[in-house]
Nucleic acid binder design. Structure first.
Lengths: 338, 338
DNA sequence: GCAGGCGTTGCACATTTGTGCAATGCCGGT
DNA sequence: ACCGGCATTGCACAAATGTGCAACGCCTGC
């Protein structure tokens, strides 16, 4: 099979038709589900196609149909544990429903973001999933105006064109506070970052509010971009002072890992005896023996499943739907029991 | 701008031409670099295009040109630190040279792998980059026969169609042995996985050979799939015996992290006083304060740069080129100095 | 003033595929 | 044997774009 002469370039349906001795229409129908072809010609066509190494040109096919089969995934920091897991879950499911993922990395400058988003439109992507980051709302509107599906994950801006999938950051943050409060912690710090992502801000706010309702005030530290380094630096700042916090709510597991390491390595502290820590995301490292971090699990599979449902069934996919999943707590060993 | 009526569907060049009062050719030429259009009509076309929200259809454009602008990235375990960083580096650079990345996740069953690879051909991808995993050679040949560029990363099978980018695993593994040998370690274990990936096997072999030349024999432990868990399990197995190894070469940083954690948490050992560890990849976690792992840095940026060079300049891209980059040692604190 | 040249523009054809419509052929029933 | 019906097939057109070729108009130089 595929004993094609090494001569370059792709094979067209015309060539297959000539070899099989049928019309090009017959070839097309052979590769179209539900089209009417006799068993004998189908067999001849398939043989010829295999011999020549023919593959249907989806670009041409997409010219005719509305459906290009391409789904754009737009996101920043895709090398981050949480985002790469999300990417993994989504791409795998997309393949299951015969779509293909086009990944736009917006970690670069904002000019490249705009260029990248334009690609979405240039390739007539079936839908655009915004995983993270803060692409300007105007660009999102451009997509919607061009008749594209847009699915926003964890962005709380209230546009009504796109589909919104969110995580209940506020509920989880409240629960985080009560976990620490019940453990007897009173001086509690919030460790966040300078990123200002909507979901991070939502976690900060809800935690602060819950603390306020319990009569406590919390300090928020933002020592850099979201990541291990910023958590470590926050630990250095917070723990070198005279009145150390008894606990910290880190709005991200990466921040939590950095914070814990600063506490243990720089100050020789024991977690959770001297310091309780709660994170968010439940990245793989949170479960490592060195951390055993108590955190909240991102409902990655639920989010990915919902996306495939939106893209597969055309019915529920319209209008500004809004779904919110819960982030369940994962008890490990960085919060004292009781 | 883009005050398009919310009515669905994309805008065609024909509609722009009518609004601007020119022929469709003029519209096409406006969006084609180097085509001859007067400044006045160009301006009128751009205004009309902006008003209607026009975006060139790359699918149609690709029908004519050879170049679809799509590059397929095929890989498994993209949620892994090393692979997600590679993905990040490559996608970012692709955008820089006006290509777009189509990601095929081969973590699923092998049937889906074949279907996915077919997508590569269906969308007339400009090139296919195989990041990892073990897609059958027959599928790779299918791509090559269809006249596609194929770029293999870290696969040592000796196909001569594709471009090969490799890392000098053997040299690094030899160096790893000498690092441990010079530190005075004699009972050395190799921690690997059951994956059997070419590069992992190459590291095992080279290390074993180097040890043999020094008159030492090493044991190789493969406790599961490549990852933290397998490293931890290997630690449990190796360190519970009567004669514990003095050092371990873990063919992956993830294995090393798991191994170190088992040593410290399960057996209360001190690294590097009682146990030296060397990893491979230099993932982010290797630099975390809890690990400070001595390891070898994957030349990710060099690999990504080379890929863009292959795709951008058409000249050097032909034939079974073979490039090999060096993995430099990163000294941290899991090997005793001197 | 006229010819030559150059920049610009439109026509028509090319790329690859799906599909409606009509024609063809085959089969069964009467 | 003939006719109706059905499955199959080919023609021609559609989708959105790039581009060679010829025509057109304008400017310049003589």
């Amino acid at each position: 099979m595929s004993e094609l002469k090494p001569g370059r370039s792709f094979v067209s349906a015309q060539q297959v038709a000539e070899l099989a001795g049928v019309s090009r229409s017959a070839v097309s129908r052979t590769f179209t589900d539900g089209a009417s072809v006799s068993e004998s010609t189908r067999k001849r066509v398939l043989e010829a196609a295999d011999k020549l190494g023919y593959h249907v040109n989806h670009l041409a096919r997409s010219l005719i149909h509305e459906d290009s089969g391409i789904v754009c995934l737009i996101g920043a920091d895709i090398n981050t544990p949480y985002h790469s897991r999300l990417l993994d879950a989504i791409t795998r499911r997309l393949q299951g429903i015969n779509r293909v993922a086009m990944v736009i990395n917006t970690s670069g400058d904002s000019a490249s973001v705009e260029a990248a988003l334009r690609q979405t439109l240039n390739y007539r992507a079936n839908a655009t999933v915004v995983l993270s980051g803060t692409p300007p709302a105007s660009l999102i509107n451009t997509c919607i105006n061009s008749g594209q599906h847009v699915i926003l994950i964890n962005r709380d801006d209230h546009l009504d064109g796109p589909e919104n999938i969110t995580v209940d950051n506020a509920a989880a943050a409240r629960e985080a506070f009560h976990m620490l409060h019940r453990a007897g912690c009173r001086r509690i710090a919030v460790v966040s970052s300078q990123a200002g992502t909507p979901s991070l801000v939502a976690r900060e706010r809800a935690f602060e509010t819950a603390a306020g309702e319990a009569g406590l005030s919390v300090s928020i530290t933002r020592a850099g971009p979201t990541g291990y380094g910023a958590g470590f630096e926050a630990g250095r700042l917070l723990l070198s002072g005279s009145d150390r916090p008894e606990a910290a709510f880190c709005v991200t597991d990466l921040l939590a890992c950095g914070f814990m390491d600063a506490a243990r390595v720089e100050f020789g502290m024991n977690v959770p005896a001297e310091l309780c820590v709660v994170g968010f995301d439940d990245i793989e490292q949170a479960g490592w023996a060195s951390y055993q971090l108590t955190t909240f699990r991102q409902p990655i599979d639920q989010v990915a499943d919902h996306i495939t449902r939106l893209l597969d069934g055309d019915d529920a996919a319209r209008g500004g739907g809004r779904v919110c999943f819960h982030a369940d707590p994962v008890w490990r060993r960085t919060v004292r029991p009781k």
